[in-house]
Structure formats: C-alpha cells, structure tokens
Design a protein around this nucleic acid. Structure first.
Lengths: 199, 199
DNA sequence: CTGCTTCCATACGGCAGAGTATGGGGTTAC
DNA sequence: GTAACCCCATACTCTGCCGTATGGAAGCAG
C-alpha cells in the first residue's frame, strides 16, 4: 500500500496523492452532495486527476467510504476533546459546546449528510458511536452541575436534540447567523433554558 | 390530462393509476431512499408497472418531484391544522405537538429526507415554507401562554429544534421508542423544560 | 544504461437509469 | 361496428458511472 496515513497536501497540491487525501476529499464531497453523491469519477474530477489513481490506492468505492468514515470519526473524537474535554467548569464547557454549534464547520455538514442515511450498514454504526459519544460527554458535564445521573442523561438528550435541530435550521437559513446580535441572544436563551439549573 | 387529483387507490390496486398515485408513491420512495433515490424506473417497479405509464402522466422526473413536494406540503398543512389548530388550551396543544413527534412516521421521514437537500432549488423553498409555518404555529401557542412575542419566537425556535433533533435521534435508534415508559418520562421532561413557564 | 517500483493516463466493457417512439388492448361515443 | 381516446407495454438510444486492463512517465538501485 502506502507509507503515510497522515495527510499531506493540506494546502498546496504538489507531489502525489495519499489515501488520506482521497478520504478527505471524499468527506468534502459527502458534505456537498450527500453520501449518494460520493462517486469515484466525480471525486477524481474534483481533484483534477483520473480514476486510474484512485483504483491504485483503493479497491473500490465501498472501501473509500468506510475509510473516510473512520477518518471522520477520528476527527470528531479530536474535536470533542478540545470542545468538551478541557479543565474548565462544566457550565462553561456546555456553553462552549452550544456556541460551537454555530460554526458551520465541515464536520457538522458531514454529520447532517450521514444523518440522512442512518440505515446504511456502513454508516449507521459510525453515526451511532459518534452520537452516543457526544451525548455521553454532555451528560457527564451536566452531571457535574449537580443533576442526578438519570436526569442528567435526559437533559443531555434534550440538549443534543436541540443541537442537531439547530444545525438543520441553520442549513435551511431559517435561524440567525453567528454574526447577528439576535444570535447571541438566542444562545443565551438556550443556555438559560437548558443548562442553568432550576428546581 | 386527467380528471382526478384526489388519489384513488388508497388500498387496493385495481383500475388505472392517477398522477396522485405516482406522487404518493414518490413520497414513499423519498422517505425510504432519499431524494436522490427517487427514480422513474425504481418507482415503476415498486408499482408493478412500466415507465410507459409514467411518461404519459408526467413530462419527466423533475415534474414528478415538484408535484410530490406540493402534495406533501398540502398534507403537512392539513396535519398542522389538526395538530396545532384546535380549540384546546395552548399548553395542551403544545404537549400534543411534542407527543406527535413520535407519530406520523411517513411525513417525518419525508421531512428528514428533504432536510438532507436544503440547497436544492426545488426542495429548499418548500422546506423553508413548511418549517416556517410550523414554527409560527408553535410561537403563536407559546405566546398564548403569556410570553412576549420575541421570547415566544425564541422559545418556539428552541422547541422546534429539539423536535427535529429528536427525529434524527429516533432515526438512529438512540432514543426510547414510544412504547417504553422511558419515553413518557422523557416527554414529560421536555414539556417541563420547554413549555411550562418559569421566571 | 537497465531494471524495478510507484503513481497516474487511456481505453474498454458493462450496467442502470432517463427519455423517446411506437404499438396495442380496452373503453367510450355515436 | 368503428372511430377516437385513454392508459400502458415494448424496444430503442443516450448518458453517467463503476470497475478493469494496460501502457507510460518519473524516480531510484545497481
């Protein structure tokens, strides 16, 4: 196979392509066109190259998809560490999580694209693990706020549901963008409604 | 063209097909395979018929999609009337809305499928209108609870976000099904957190 | 220079689906 | 009866994509 799994070609496009480059480009294509839009020839056109290169690195389309999903899961694990794994107080960690919802990052768009195909045997397990991991981290932070484990879990489910739903509304452009002052107001509303402890 | 737009063939499959039958079958196919999975030949196979029938009723695939979307929007308007348009007190209407999250799987699955392609010029406007209409009805009910219009709108956005997110988690089978007692408990938690007025 | 490996280009076969053309069975009108 | 129309079947072309086969350029070893 190849030597490197850590991606070269972060910016410029010199030298030769690595499997990591193909996987990353596949993730971007998934974010744009959805999982069903991930094709070998469209991907090759996007990289200004021909299929011959792809079929040297990968056996086929399926293997590319599972490799890209594995790559995405690892990336999401990293993002979760810096987002909810710090040493800050739990309220601040949760507020940061809510705030990060608005960053229309690549990971979020990929997550929405994968949510459209939860029954795919290649996608479903990955999606399930990622979602469960995120909710678990949320529940841990909520529990540090003083809630009972069961209540913290319910609160984390509700918090994560509103997070995913907000991503959808954001994709439909039906919600204030993170530049407007209404957005800050809405974030404050969410934090006050779902994070600050009452009763 | 044809005479009837109101669908025949609700159950049995005798007589001839109407455009409404094709549109309804298209919606079911969208719910199953996504928007990109809507094809003329797969749809014809599902109806045990050939393409020749389809191309007599519709000019092409695009026209079927827009007709099916229009049909879905009308159906959703009807569902919204019976769900949030009654004469019940607003708290009960909102609780019923939350409870209905777990019902009407076809409309919900279609909504999730459409959420995956919000940038499609044929889907985006329809999706935007449907979502805005739902949120508006929610905001009206919340406002009847005594909140200021701006606060009611924020609360409705949050409520609807959690609704959409719950649909996603439900599709991933990561959330209690509406048979389990945990489900009732969770619904109570949502109502208490997002509907009952505090402060 | 020669041979080997690595990475990509080119060309081909095959399949699935869109759209078209045309015919044919069935019903209705008269 | 027959003519017209409605609805569908059949056969065809065309396009986009997957996967394969094969050749070829660039680098390195000796």
């Amino acid at each position: 196979m190849k030597n490197s799994n850590t991606s070269t070609r972060a910016n410029g496009d010199r030298a030769t392509l690595t499997p990591a480059d193909w996987e990353q480009a596949a993730l971007e294509l998934i974010a744009d066109k959805g999982v069903s839009g991930l094709g070998v020839e469209p991907l090759a056109r996007r990289l200004d190259i021909t299929k011959g290169s792809f079929y040297w690195h990968f056996p086929g389309r399926n293997e590319l998809l599972v490799a890209a999903l594995e790559r995405w899961e690892n990336q999401d694990r990293q993002h979760l560490k810096v987002s909810l794994g710090g040493d800050m107080p739990p309220a601040q960690r949760l507020a940061q999580f809510v705030w990060r919802t608005s960053q229309q990052t690549l990971t979020h768009r990929i997550y929405l694209a994968l949510c459209a195909a939860p029954e795919d045997p290649r996608i479903g397990p990955v999606l399930k693990r990622v979602t469960a991991r995120r909710i678990q981290h949320l529940a841990a932070a909520v529990e540090e706020l003083g809630l009972e484990p069961a209540a913290a879990r319910q609160r984390a489910n509700l918090l994560y549901s509103s997070y995913v739903g907000y991503l959808q509304l954001q994709a439909q452009e039906l919600v204030p963008n993170p530049g407007a002052p209404e957005f800050e107001q809405y974030v404050g509303h969410v934090i006050q409604s779902l994070i600050e402890i009452r009763g």
